[in-house]
């Protein structure tokens, strides 16, 4: 449907009312599609919007559609190429975490890309995505959901892959294959084995095959 807004004689309240009314009487997906379509922005604006997103948000957005992934890879080529190191490690709760390690002002920063949590079959995920040909359930780690935890001021929500015990290996393989495709070939992957003493984790085959042992420390 076409959304028409009177250019004059309208205040913001009228506009919002008009949009709300249209949404109420029409198919919700069509009205939203007419509201803001990223692909219709000029290329430089698309680039600016993507530039303002965190790596985990770009990663998640790339999984929405193949063309979105192409757009991100072309718009953000320089940024993706600037990623030198991705580390698999455990966080304070002993969950496997994949993060970008970057140096800024002589300090090392971690940009979390994804976390892997064991998931009970009775729990409900937020959404499901096809990652390198494998359907994986996801939840979002947000501030609202983790009020009991202290989270830094610059915290950004990130996806949590819901891992079932029987499927742990194939999920990790699929996610790692996706990273290999999404980020530049020059990225070095590290597996911080010392932190996995409590529960042995499967190391992705690609990680073992592609890199010398010194990178798996």
């Amino acid at each position: 449907m076409t959304l028409y807004i009177e250019p004059y004689g309208s205040c913001y309240c009228c506009v919002i009312y008009h949009v709300t009314r249209c949404r109420f009487f029409s198919n919700s997906s069509s009205i939203l599609a007419t509201e803001m379509i990223l692909s219709k922005y000029p290329w430089l604006v698309q680039n600016e919007i993507l530039q303002n997103m965190e790596p985990s948000e770009l990663l998640l957005l790339s999984l929405v559609s193949k063309n979105m992934k192409k757009l991100i890879k072309s718009c953000q080529k320089k940024r993706l190429e600037s990623v030198n190191t991705i580390v698999y490690s455990t966080d304070v709760n002993n969950y496997l975490c994949a993060y970008i390690l970057r140096e800024s002002h002589k300090f090392m920063h971690k940009d979390i890309l994804m976390r892997f949590e064991e998931f009970q079959e009775t729990e409900t995920p937020d959404f499901q995505l096809n990652v390198s040909g494998k359907k994986i359930d996801f939840r979002l780690f947000t501030r609202e959901r983790n009020k009991e935890l202290w989270l830094p001021e610059n915290f950004h929500p990130y996806p949590v892959a819901c891992v079932q015990k029987s499927d742990k290996e194939s999920i990790l393989e699929s996610v790692h294959n996706y990273f290999l495709d999404f980020f530049a070939h020059s990225v070095k992957y590290y597996w911080k084995a010392k932190e996995f003493e409590d529960g042995p984790y499967h190391i992705p085959k690609q990680l073992l095959n592609s890199y010398p042992k010194k990178d798996v420390f």
Partner: peptide, 23 residues
């Protein structure tokens, strides 16, 4: 652009799809 990028924060892929008009 920053406002648009911020509006995607904490959104599921389905919500991102709706927000950015991705069919």
């Amino acid at each position: 652009c920053k406002t648009v990028a911020n509006s995607a924060k904490g959104k599921s892929t389905e919500e991102m799809r709706e927000l950015f008009g991705i069919p």
